[in-house]
Simulated assay, not measured.
Amino acid sequence: MKIRAAVVREKGGPLSIETLELEAPRDDEILVRVVATGVCHTDVVVRDGLLPTPHPVVLGHEGAGIVEQVGRNVSKVVPGDPVVMTYDSCGTCPACSAHAQSYCHAFFPRNFFATRSDGSSAISKDGERIHGNFFGQSSFATRALCHERNVVKVPADVPLELLGPLACGVQTGAGAVLNALRVPAGASFAIFGAGSVGLSAVMAARVAGATTIVAIDLHDARLDFARSVGATHTLNPARDDVVAALTDLTGYGVDYTLDTTGNAKVIRQAADSLAPHGTCGILGASPPGTEITLDAVHFMSGGRRVMGIVEGESTPDTFIPTLIRLYRQGMFPFDRMVKFYSFDQINEAIADSLEGKTIKPIVRME
């Protein structure tokens, strides 16, 4: 069928809206009419060639839409179901078998290689191969193919166009707090980077009952927003000595810190801010080969820990519905981060996100 999609054709260049051909779903695939999709920083990183995803490619990995057709081996959803599309996994490796699919042994090829598992692509243009299946979906398009492992049915009475970001950015930040770090009530927590992932972590820390929640960012507007959704304190590294300020605030360091920036110097600050036996989570995307240095005496003598976190260590089939329930209860107001754009404005949405004008862009399809 003919679809409209945003194609990356040159490293760092604008996405071009083009008419492409999409194959019919195979026996294990699901065709979704995309209603809206979030714009994530990972899309920008791949656009800019910082990860080895081949071009030309259709990106997008926070899609929400309506199931239109399913392959004969699919039983999880039926045509007409409202769904969000999340990250893909194999379902058979040791990690997937242990319900830790965010650490699937095939995570990178299934999400970043932008091909089916057999190396094919379902997207083309006049015989030209266009890479698809990015994160098992390529949802910067009016229709997308996904799989049972990465589709989640959602309630019909919640605005579908709002829910796409739950599939990656929002679940990553919230899941880091609730699933990976497991921040307990009464703990102190500091988030380095108050974008959509970091602010989702702030909201989740409030849900968890953390009593000291510190947001750290260079944008004062985002710090103001962080206070409105749960942060008890804010710091701006342009003015504040972050490590000293966090130590003074807590008296001994922070129980849990989380870096969303992927910047090695910032990660060092997050680790240096830890209290004895504290834990620093890292989820920001760094270029391959990035190295992190730590003060060995500080790290070892206090029993401090540093851990990598992927997709919030979430099981999407259960965690995304949990976030929706928290949203309905007024405890997780992620909708306040969102600004909607038309599909034709996708490059504007990306630019506004990079410039800090918009926390979480969502593009609506026609």
Rank of each mutant, 00 (worst) to 15 (best):
A190S: 09
E128S: 05
R227G: 11
H233C: 08
A231I: 00
Q137C: 10
H147E: 13
K153T: 10
C168D: 10
A201K: 05
A144W: 12
L166V: 07
S139M: 00
A185N: 15
P159Y: 07
T142F: 03
A204M: 13
H219Y: 15
A226W: 02
V202S: 08
V197Y: 05
A221R: 12
A238S: 12
S139K: 04
T232C: 03
A231L: 03
I216F: 06
G186L: 13
S196W: 05
A174P: 07
V151T: 08
S228M: 07
A201Y: 02
V197A: 00
V207F: 11
I191P: 00
K153P: 09
S138M: 12
T172K: 03
D217Q: 05
L162G: 08
S139D: 03
F135R: 05
G169R: 00
A215F: 13
G132F: 03
H131W: 07
L223T: 04
L163T: 02
H147N: 15
R182A: 15
A205C: 02
E148I: 01
F189K: 13
A156V: 14
R227I: 11
S200E: 12
V197N: 00
D217W: 07
A176N: 14
N236G: 03
A226F: 14
A201L: 11
E148G: 04
V158M: 04
A210V: 09
D217I: 15
A180Q: 10
G209C: 08
A141V: 12
T142I: 05
G132S: 09
L223F: 09
A141L: 13
A221S: 10
P184V: 15
G175H: 13
C168F: 03
N133Y: 15
T211E: 13
G169F: 00
E128K: 07
E128D: 11
A231M: 04
V170N: 02
I216R: 03
P237Q: 13
L145R: 06
V158D: 04
F225A: 05
G164A: 01
P165S: 15
G173M: 04
A141S: 11
T211G: 11
Q171L: 05
R182C: 14
F225M: 14
V158W: 03
L166S: 14
A226L: 08
D157F: 10
R222T: 15
D217R: 08
A156F: 11
N236R: 10
A176M: 00
G186M: 04
A231P: 00
E161I: 02
P165T: 14
V207R: 08
N236S: 06
M203D: 05
L163C: 05
G198E: 07
G193K: 02
G230L: 14
N236D: 06
L181R: 04
M203T: 06
L145C: 14
I191G: 14
I216L: 10
S200G: 09
D220Q: 15
T172M: 07
F140Y: 11
S188R: 15
R143A: 15
I130N: 01
S188A: 11
G195M: 01
A208S: 13
G173H: 10
D157N: 15
H147G: 09
R149Q: 09
D224L: 14
R129E: 10
V229A: 04
P237A: 07
A215K: 11
G230P: 01
N236Y: 13
N133T: 12
